[in-house]
C-alpha cells in the first residue's frame, strides 16, 4: 500500500533530522564545557611570582634570634608546626602571618566589587609528598569578596618541617562573581 509507506519515509526523515541536530548540539555543548572548565582554573605566572616574592618579605616577628626578623615563609613553617607558636615579641606567629598576608595582598592587588578582581582566597596547606593533592585542611585561610567559578591561580611550594612534607601556598584571584 503506497500511503503508509510515504508516512514511514517522512518519519525516518524526521528522526534523521532530530538525530543530526542532537549530535551537533552535543558536540557544541561538549566544546562549551571544555572551554568553561579551562576558564575556571587558569594557572598564572604573575601570581606565582607574587607568592615567591611575598614569602621572602621580612615580617615584624622574631622567632629564634632577636637580631634577625623572620620572613613570611619562615612564619609559615613555624605556624605549620605549632599553631600556638609565639614570636619573641609575644604575638602569635599564625596571626602575624595572617594579618601580614592580608596587608600584602591588599597592597598588591585591587580587590573589590567595582574592580576586575572581585575576591581572593589565600591558603597554606601541609602536603605529604607521597600524595598528589593536598589532603589536610589549610592552617592559614584568608578569604575576601566573592569567589565564583572564574579565577586565576598561583602556587608556591616550599619544604615542610616534617620529612616528606611540603607547604603549598596558593592564591586564587576571582575575576567573576
Amino acid at each position: 500500500m503506497p500511503l503508509p509507506k510515504q508516512g514511514q519515509e517522512e518519519l525516518v526523515g524526521f528522526v534523521l533530522v532530530v538525530v543530526i541536530v542532537a549530535v551537533a548540539g552535543l558536540i557544541i555543548m561538549g566544546l562549551f564545557l571544555r572551554i568553561e572548565s579551562g576558564k575556571q582554573k587558569m594557572k598564572s605566572a604573575d601570581i606565582a611570582q607574587f607568592l615567591d616574592s611575598s614569602l621572602l618579605v621580612t615580617s615584624r616577628c622574631h622567632l629564634s634570634s632577636p637580631l634577625f626578623p623572620a620572613s613570611m615563609g619562615e612564619l609559615a613553617v613555624a605556624c605549620s608546626l605549632d599553631k600556638g607558636e609565639r614570636c619573641l615579641e609575644g604575638t602569635n606567629v599564625c596571626s602575624v602571618l595572617n594579618i601580614s598576608m592580608q596587608e600584602i595582598i591588599k597592597s598588591s592587588w585591587a580587590v573589590g566589587a567595582s574592580s576586575v578582581i572581585k575576591g581572593y582566597e589565600f591558603q597554606i596547606v601541609m602536603m605529604s609528598n607521597r600524595t598528589t593533592s593536598p589532603t589536610s585542611t589549610p592552617f592559614i585561610l584568608i578569604q575576601e569578596g566573592m569567589c565564583n567559578k572564574d579565577y586565576r591561580l598561583g602556587e608556591h611550594l616550599q619544604p615542610g618541617t616534617r620529612r616528606g612534607t611540603s607547604l603549598v601556598t596558593t592564591l586564587k584571584l576571582c575575576t567573576d562573581a
Partner: peptide
C-alpha cells in the same frame, strides 16, 4: 645592619 626585604 639587618637584612630587610620588602615586596616590590
Amino acid at each position: 645592619e639587618q637584612t630587610v626585604c620588602d615586596l616590590g
